[in-house]
Design a protein around this nucleic acid. Structure first.
Lengths: 191, 191
DNA sequence: CTATATCTGTCTATCGATAGATAGATTGCG
DNA sequence: CGCAATCTATCTATCGATAGACAGATATAG
């Protein structure tokens, strides 16, 4: 019983692992459980990802890359900062709607002290990527604002949305996320 | 080698456990490690807290109670909403300043799916307590606003601050927390 | 074309460490 | 004595990781 290609099984492992981390965190990721889900043995998972850190780093890296690709698409699709922000907030909402999951890097941030160095690096990159994109959006909405202020505000938006997701998840109530985002809008934090 | 009273050792265990959870989360809490830290055996920890869930729930309950007591004191000390919010933000900052720790219930929210029911209950209560206090503060700052809007805004502030803590922790940079709170202020999210 | 060698992906079996939890003995205070 | 608190010893379950074997695909040399 062999997978068609190495890549196929590697993909399957990553998909299963991503779902687990978003639900239960990096620490809860188990080679045995993962193997069972994709139909191989845990030793074979080690073949694709020698250590757990390798797997975690690969997950976070891909998560950032896919997010960046989608955000770039948004940026190219519309010049409307408000519309882009709607779509942005919808990404984090989708994780909650999908079985109360969290942002992969958000949940990893909470486990920071237990992460191998290579995973931390990728978590950092995710935040940077998000802040970078948000800064671009803000520069459209508030063209006369200085770069410094834009970046601070971008960071604030990123943090606020991660927090909305965290708290809504904790309360198992996606309505909290929606109302919180609305409040961010009302106060002017989000364009 | 016996502790003076049952309460003494119970306190010592809770203090050590609190620090561990704030740094590494509920899942990383280990009876053996905890016992080693306070100088007893793991079986003795089970004497004070029969199950891990009991310990976790006790931790979260006390965390909420202590927080509520401090916040009530703030509320009684000053009528200045802005000053109260400064102190409030300082609480979450202190956790970061203390070895990059997190809000106990914030980090537990990220681990939600792995928490025993009795722990979840306490995590919920913490959020409710915070939103309740923030609503009171907001009603001082914006007396003409409806209760509904006040509560939504209070929830938004709570979520935003938890998020600022999460992200700043992820980046191991307390400056991010400070700048983010400042941005919240500038935009008017926080009084 | 065939025989040999290497590579790929998976397997079985096992290691040492650690987890939460429990039973039953022991210690020491009032 | 009797009870409160801690101990020793152990159980079962799970963890990440490794060693070694093997089947099938592929590449290479004669």
């Amino acid at each position: 019983m062999m997978a068609k290609t190495k890549t196929d099984m590697r993909e399957a492992v990553m998909t299963a692992a991503k779902a687990t981390v978003q639900s239960h965190g990096y620490n809860a990721l188990s080679f045995r459980e993962l193997a069972k889900e994709v139909g191989i043995k845990s030793a074979s998972v080690h073949y694709h990802f020698p250590t757990k850190g390798d797997l975690g780093a690969a997950l976070a890296r891909r998560y950032t890359e896919e997010g960046a690709a989608y955000l770039a698409e948004l940026l190219a699709t519309s010049n409307d900062a408000s519309w882009c922000m709607d779509r942005y907030a919808a990404i984090f909402r989708a994780a909650l709607a999908n079985d109360n999951r969290m942002c992969l890097c958000g949940i990893m941030s909470a486990e920071l002290d237990d992460l191998p160095a290579e995973v931390r690096t990728e978590v950092d990159r995710f935040a940077q990527m998000n802040v970078g994109w948000l800064t671009q959006i803000l520069s459209r909405a508030r063209p006369s604002t200085g770069e410094q202020d834009l970046q601070e505000c971008a960071m604030a938006i990123f943090a606020a949305i991660e927090g909305a997701q965290l708290v809504a998840r904790g309360c198992r109530d996606i309505g909290i996320y929606d109302r919180t985002i609305r409040a961010y809008r009302t106060t002017g934090l989000i364009p």
